[in-house]
């Protein structure tokens, strides 16, 4: 199956081209767009990016494998990133993690998410969920799943 950037993304890429000094630098924003569009980055998407930017597919693939936040395979479960750093730990992230263990989600331990004022925090896709309690987690997951 071919990957085609949406009209909206193509306009974005054209606009970004003016801002970046080299096509290599555009690689990361393009990978993000591809991941948002399909939920993961397929090899077809990598080919499409390489064609759009005029660089080798391998160059794009190398970048995609380097960063853990890019998924190269379809994600079957919801990815829940739970902060494991000090403030969240003190405010009860352990209880959140324990609670999540019984859910049908993929738990990822991350370093500080930068929202210590509202600890404990977790991130699902691009959204922060703050001041968590086990009950609040239930409500969030019910809405998403």
């Amino acid at each position: 199956m071919n990957f085609i950037f949406t009209e909206e993304n193509l306009i974005k890429i054209e606009a970004l081209k003016l801002r970046y000094p080299s096509p290599q630098a555009l690689c990361l924003p393009c990978l993000w767009m591809a991941q948002h569009q399909e939920g993961y980055i397929s090899i077809n998407a990598i080919d499409a990016i390489s064609e759009t930017l005029g660089i080798a597919p391998m160059e794009v693939y190398r970048v995609a494998t380097f960063y853990t936040m890019f998924h190269l395979e379809p994600q079957e479960k919801l990815n829940v990133q739970v902060c494991k750093t000090l403030s969240c730990k003190l405010c009860g992230s352990d209880a959140i993690l324990e609670h999540l263990k019984n859910k049908e989600v993929n738990i990822i331990h991350t370093e500080c998410l930068g929202s210590c004022g509202t600890a404990p925090v977790m991130q699902i896709n691009d959204t922060f969920y703050e001041n968590l309690t086990p009950e609040k987690v239930d409500a969030i997951l019910k809405e998403l799943l």
Partner: peptide, 26 residues
């Protein structure tokens, strides 16, 4: 493959102790 043949088949993928030489999948 980058500089001499310009075919770009090989690259180092992953990072840290998981880094390895590889071709694109398939």
């Amino acid at each position: 493959t980058d500089k001499i043949t310009h075919t770009h088949e090989l690259g180092i993928i992953g990072r840290g102790d998981e880094a390895k030489v590889s071709t694109m999948p398939g």
